[in-house]
Write a protein that binds this DNA or RNA. Structure first.
Length: 883
RNA sequence: GGGCGGAUAGCUCAGGGGGAGAGCAUCGGCCUUACAAGCCGGGGGUCAGAGGUUCAAAUCCUCUUCCGCCCACCA
């Protein structure tokens, strides 16, 4: 016999509980894999948050979902590895540190590369643990011994290896291309890193006179300052208006250069004047035109967004002031025809919001087409499955139109591109080693490493295998690659998911994960993405502080329906906090009633020997376990959580526990009821543990006779196959509906405190009748009345209140005078409802098509319902007469 | 310009071809062997609009309106 624990405190206080278990879990390393050969492996890699970041609500959702999966799988017998880690987040982190420096009055250039990187590393050391601590606070059951960082030595080696192999395979090349440039961060950006926003702007019409004086051509532009870099004017060759202009020269206003008029099919005759100025070095479309026609590229804006010497008198001006000046001068010299309001879409840097400048520059690219092909096939053939499925369309769309990936960045924080240039012979070499001393071609030691670093997503793309020690052949890779599932949100399907699939297939020869679960974005109440700059963030840490981690987790999970965004509100969190309190208190109740419990188990009793409602609750529990498991397996986490929620509250607390109070008083039933209470509570707690780990762990440790050190070490509940016979089901339903009916009558007639009512239940079902007679006590106890009579036939009596149920009728003699008018009103209202319903069914039953075409069970059911309602109507009629 | 998703109770949202659901809010009544963060009972919805498919539509299809996302080199 186990000495009983002292009862739980009244009211659940997460603060007292969460910290304690957190410490225990992390300390004992229960989240690390065991490598037990008996167990099947299951692995997840975390989407690594920014190393200097702070937990936001999106992380909270993302990691809660992963945690639910990880805990469920662990309890279900898998050997789970969940690799945690952080991302160095190149530009973002560099910007943060630069801002710090700015406060001290420095720029990174003043500090120099080496010193600057030291600062960033310092920053990383100081704040790098923050996000990890916060993830732990969230209860994330990551395998903390395997913590990784994208710039760890191991991961950096993987980056170099991948770069070199791609370079050797000819999949990485360097070239002059027009790219997106952020003049503030002073770096190139990939297409994906540019965000477009519509903005009110103007369309200016500029006059370009023909050199031969035979006329002029008017072009429309949104960026007049780029005219300084024009090297042609393009028209559509099929445009009759301009046919004769092609081949002629126009004089560029302000600068006086002579440039040709060319014909190009990409020009839309409908837009503007049908003539386009061509600025090859500062516009993507113009760049393409220029390549087709062999036009010169004239760079008039530099890396800082200032006009170059090519811009003549405008040299040194910022690009926006240059626009003003150019317009003034054009106006003054009569080259500005008119201006119109025009809404344009401007690209902005996704990290700092600065307007992007398309710029011609030398960058490194990855050839994507050859990598994309197998990655498309992997999803087409369902080797990788998306949940919900429709996200794969988005994936296909992007992958099939993929363009080469610009991977070089002109910042300092990141993986420096492992390319070395021989200063003597010009040889370009890729090196797996960090240092490289001698030219392979000429033996010169005069080598210079590439200044640029890699796009931060380059290392992220390797995450599933670089974290497991690749390129070494490690045990980790052997056992846990490919990973089982990737949990992420749709906004990084291109940035990350697609690239991991490509790299995984290319370097591991295997998919990086079998399933991709795409969860919702958590938005604000207006449906907008939360962001610091908009000031509409809900801080998960604040919520945790206020409501507790479990409440936040449960809320996020319960709201995370597949394929739909979450609009979070604090009232929901509050509601679910109440649920935790309920769980806490019912546990308290069970424990308080276990004082004399001898510790029998369910197996000590025969099914036949159990009380009716004990069998019932076991059957209900069984249904719940089945449903929760099914929902978890299908990644319908909200449904799983809500199913368990309703079982605990509506079924267990509201019915079984109340009935158990009665059973506990009966000597014969007391002990088995204790065993059932404990069993159901313990099972429910296991069921709920993946969602709300802290409170369940705390409760579990207060239960007697538990096995294992932590709840996580127990096994997830399985369906046992308990079910009631048909007679038992009828009996249970009857009891419940009788109780509800009496409660309703008492409430309607304001008799809630009156016990001495004469209540009669009549049913024609003799079997039910005899069964019910033994259960009168449950009814009187829960309905709070002194007694109830059961009968098969009943005299009609004036002044009784009566309710029709599925299994019979309840009559209440209110003894005092009742408001007959009110009862009449109620009955008439019910009568009307029934009549409406009957009319509806009648219409169906008269419809030959329905009778012939609808499934027979449906027809049968309708007929049955029709009969039942006819009977009801007759009864109501009688009740009305009896009033 | 393409593509995707949404419109269901006062609010926030589930559901999804055969009797409209939850949480919060609201109204009435309760300190009952845990829980007032609770218990018992009630009210409240032409499931955006129109058409179609079907014996049967909130649910499937089409269109319309509004909202939100993603993609796209119309200067």
């Amino acid at each position: 016999m186990k000495k009983e624990k002292k009862a739980l405190d009244k009211g659940y206080d997460p603060k007292l509980v969460e910290e304690k278990w957190l410490e225990e879990w992390v300390k004992t390393k229960i989240f690390d894999p065991t490598f037990d050969p008996q167990k099947k492996p299951f692995s997840i890699v975390i989407p690594p948050p920014n190393v200097t970041g702070s937990l936001h609500i999106g992380h909270a959702l993302n990691n809660t979902i992963q945690d639910v999966i990880a805990r469920y799988k662990r309890m279900d017998g898998y050997d789970v590895l969940w690799i945690p880690g952080t991302d160095h987040a190149g530009i973002a982190t560099q910007n943060v540190v630069e801002r710090e420096l700015a406060k001290e009055g420095y720029t990174r250039h003043q500090l120099g590369r080496e010193k600057f990187l030291e600062r960033v590393w310092q920053w990383k050391e100081r704040y790098g643990q923050t996000i990890i601590k916060q993830l732990q606070r969230l209860g994330a059951s990551c395998s903390w011994s395997y913590l990784r960082f994208t710039m760890d030595e191991g991961l950096s080696r993987a980056v170099r290896e991948v770069f070199c192999r791609l370079f050797e395979e000819g999949l990485i090349y360097r070239g002059d291309y027009i790219i997106n440039w952020c003049p503030r961060c002073e770096t190139a950006l990939a297409d994906l890193e540019v965000e477009f926003e519509p903005k009110a702007g103007k369309l200016w019409y500029l006059i370009y006179p023909l050199v031969d004086g035979s006329g002029e051509i008017v072009v429309a532009t949104t960026r007049p300052e780029t005219m300084l870099g024009d090297t042609a004017v393009a028209v559509n060759p099929q445009d009759e208006r301009y046919k004769n202009f092609i081949g002629k020269l126009v004089k560029l206003p302000l600068l006086g250069r002579e440039i040709p008029v060319i014909g190009d099919l990409s020009v839309d005759p409908e837009f503007g004047t049908g003539a386009v100025k061509v600025t090859p070095a500062h516009d993507f479309a113009d760049y393409e035109i220029a390549k087709r026609h062999g036009l010169p590229f004239l760079k008039v804006i530099d890396e800082k967004g200032r006009m170059t010497k090519e811009a003549g008198p405008y040299q040194g001006l910022d690009r926006f002031s240059a626009r003003e000046r150019v317009l003034e001068d054009l106006q003054a010299q009569g080259y500005l025809l008119k201006e119109e309001d025009y809404e344009l879409v401007l690209g902005h840097c996704y990290r700092c919001g600065t307007v992007i400048e398309p710029l011609l520059s030398k960058q490194w690219f990855v050839r994507m087409k050859p990598l994309a092909q197998p990655a498309i096939a992997a999803v087409e053939y369902d080797f990788i499955k998306f949940y919900p499925e429709n996200w794969k369309n988005l994936y296909f769309d992007w992958m099939r139109n993929i363009r080469d990936w610009c991977i070089s960045r002109q910042i300092w924080w990141g993986h420096r591109i492992p390319i070395w240039y021989c200063q003597d012979c010009g040889k370009i070499m890729a090196s797996r080693e960090e240092e490289f001393s001698q030219c392979l071609e000429c033996g010169s030691t005069n080598l210079k490493q590439e200044e640029d670093v890699l796009d931060t997503w380059f290392s992220s793309a390797l995450w599933p295998f670089s974290t497991m020690g690749w390129p070494e052949k490690t045990d980790l890779l052997q056992r846990f690659y490919p990973t089982s599932v990737l949990v992420t949100s749709f906004d990084i399907i291109f940035f990350w998911v697609a690239r991991m699939i490509m790299m995984g297939l290319h370097f591991m020869g295997a998919i990086p994960f079998a399933k991709v679960y795409i969860h919702a974005l958590v938005r604000d109440e207006k449906g907008q993405k939360m962001s610091k700059s908009k000031g509409n963030v809900i801080d998960p840490l604040e919520m945790i502080e206020k409501y507790g981690t479990d409440a936040l987790r449960f809320t996020l999970i319960a709201l995370a329906a597949q394929g739909r965004d979450i609009k979070l509100s604090t009232s929901r969190i509050e509601g679910f906090k109440h649920f935790l309190n309920k769980l806490w208190n019912v546990s308290r109740f069970v424990l308080l009633n276990l004082e004399d419990f001898r510790g029998t188990r369910l197996n000590d009793y025969t099914w036949k020997g159990l009380a009716l409602f004990s069998k019932w609750i076991l059957a209900e529990l069984d249904n719940t376990i089945g449903a929760v498991r099914k929902f978890l397996d299908e990644y319908e986490f909200d449904q799983a959580a809500l199913r368990a929620y309703h079982f605990l509250w509506d079924t267990f607390c509201d019915w079984y526990v109340e009935i158990a109070k009665l059973y506990l008083q009966e000597e014969k039933l007391r002990e088995q009821t204790q065993a059932i209470l404990l069993h159901v509570l313990e099972t429910t707690i296991k069921l709920l543990h993946p969602f709300i780990p802290f409170i369940t762990e705390e409760i579990w440790h207060n239960l007697p006779k538990r096995a294992g050190k932590f709840l996580l070490n127990t096994s997830y509940p399985v369906v046992e196959g308990y079910s009631l016979s048909e007679d038992e089901k009828t009996l249970v339903n009857s009891i419940i509906e009788i109780i509800k009916a009496i409660r309703y009558i008492k409430s309607e007639y304001k008799l809630t405190s009156q016990r001495d009512l004469k209540v009669i239940f009549r049913t024609p079902d003799e079997g039910l009748l005899s069964n019910l007679k033994e259960k009168g006590k449950i009814i009187t106890y829960l309905a709070k009345i002194d007694q109830i009579e059961f009968c098969k036939e009943k005299e009609r009596k004036k002044g009784e209140v009566s309710l029709i149920l599925n299994t019979g009728e309840v009559y209440v003699d209110l003894t005092k005078e009742i408001n007959l008018e009110k009862e009449k009103e109620r009955l008439l209202k019910e009568k009307q409802k029934i009549e409406e319903k009957l009319a509806q069914i009648e219409k169906k039953l008269k419809n030959r098509d329905f009778l012939e075409r609808a499934p027979q069970e449906i027809v049968k059911k309708e007929k049955q319902t029709y009969q039942e309602y006819r009977e009801r109507l007759a009864k109501i009629q009688r009740f009305l007469e009896d009033l």
